[in-house]
Write a protein that binds this DNA or RNA. Structure first.
Length: 118
DNA sequence: GAGGTGACTGCGA
DNA sequence: CTCGCAGCCACCT
């Protein structure tokens, strides 16, 4: 059993997540819940995070560093290989990170369902 | 086949 | 205000 993950990404959900994350403007951040809600899986915010788990092998690589939890905390920083890598990237993007948390998160927050407005 | 975990969120006390 | 619990769905053991 355990089919060792499906091929990269042929799933609509995963693909959708990657698509949205890639649409995040530089210097901006969003939350898993925002993406989940945008996809209609509001309650399944965890799935978004899981999708991010495969974001590293997806091409082009998804800027998962721009995706944080609802408070702007870099919860997935440990998944970048190095706990400091995520923060480093964010700082390079122009985002100020303090204590593993995005500064002015609410200002930098980018809501797909709001910005994309469908 | 069944149980447990997880890059989360929202609501209740 | 902070702390705790339940819900959600896919992947892993």
């Amino acid at each position: 059993m355990a089919k060792a993950i499906k091929n990269t990404n042929n799933d609509s959900f995963f693909d959708n997540v990657y698509q949205v994350v890639r649409l995040i403007p530089k210097g901006r951040v969003t939350s898993y819940g925002a993406i989940a809600r945008y996809l209609g899986t509001t309650g399944s915010s965890r799935m978004v995070g899981w999708a991010m788990n495969g974001s590293h092998r997806v091409k082009p690589k998804v800027p998962a560093q721009r995706v944080v939890n609802r408070v702007g905390l870099l919860t997935g920083k440990h998944h970048f290989g190095k706990p400091d890598m995520m923060q480093k990237i964010l700082e390079r993007e122009g985002i100020r990170v303090e204590n593993d948390k995005v500064a002015d998160f609410k200002s930098l927050f980018w809501d797909p369902s709001k910005e994309l407005e469908l």
